[in-house]
Computed example of a mutant assay.
Amino acid sequence: MQRIYLDHAAATPVDKEVVELVARVSTSAWANPSSIHAQGLRAAKYIKDARERVAQFLSCQSEEVIFTASGTEANNLALFGLTRAHKKEGKRILISALEHESVRACAGRLAKEGFIVETVPVNKSGELSVSEVEKRLTKSTIMVSLMAVNNEIGTVLPIAEIGKMLLKNNKERHTHGLPRILFHTDACQAAALFPLNVNTLHVDALTLNGSKIYGPKGVGALYLRRGTKIEPLVYGGGQEQGMQSGTENTPGIAGFGLAIECAEKICEKEFDRLNHLRAVCIKRLSVAFPKIQINGSATSYAPHILNITLNGLDAEAAVVYLSGKGIDVASGSACVQKSAKQSPTLKAIGLSAGEMKSTLRVSFGRTTTTDNITKFVTTLKSISSFIRL
Rank of each mutant, 00 (worst) to 15 (best):
A148K: 00
T200Q: 12
R24F: 15
S59G: 04
R84T: 07
A11I: 13
A55L: 14
H100F: 12
T185W: 01
T138Q: 08
R278H: 05
K16N: 13
K357E: 15
L157I: 02
G40Q: 04
T175A: 14
T250G: 06
S245A: 14
E172R: 13
I213S: 03
K164V: 06
L222H: 06
R226I: 02
S96T: 13
S102I: 05
A191K: 00
H176M: 11
G252N: 08
I292P: 06
L6D: 07
Q241K: 12
N150Y: 04
L206W: 03
T378K: 13
G71I: 12
G215T: 07
L82Y: 02
R278G: 02
K135V: 15
V234Y: 15
N372F: 07
A107S: 13
Q189R: 11
L82Q: 02
Q39K: 09
K112G: 00
P216D: 12
S125E: 14
S343T: 10
D371Y: 04
R84P: 01
G296H: 08
F289T: 03
S339Y: 01
G365H: 05
N275H: 10
S385K: 08
V156C: 15
T175R: 15
E261A: 13
D204F: 10
Q39H: 11
V377R: 04
I142G: 00
N372S: 15
N150L: 11
R109I: 14
S384R: 00
E132P: 04
S382D: 11
P195T: 13
T83R: 02
L77Q: 07
T12L: 03
K212H: 09
V14T: 14
F57C: 03
H174L: 12
A192F: 06
A353K: 10
S70M: 08
G257F: 07
Q239Y: 12
G365N: 12
E118Q: 15
E231Y: 00
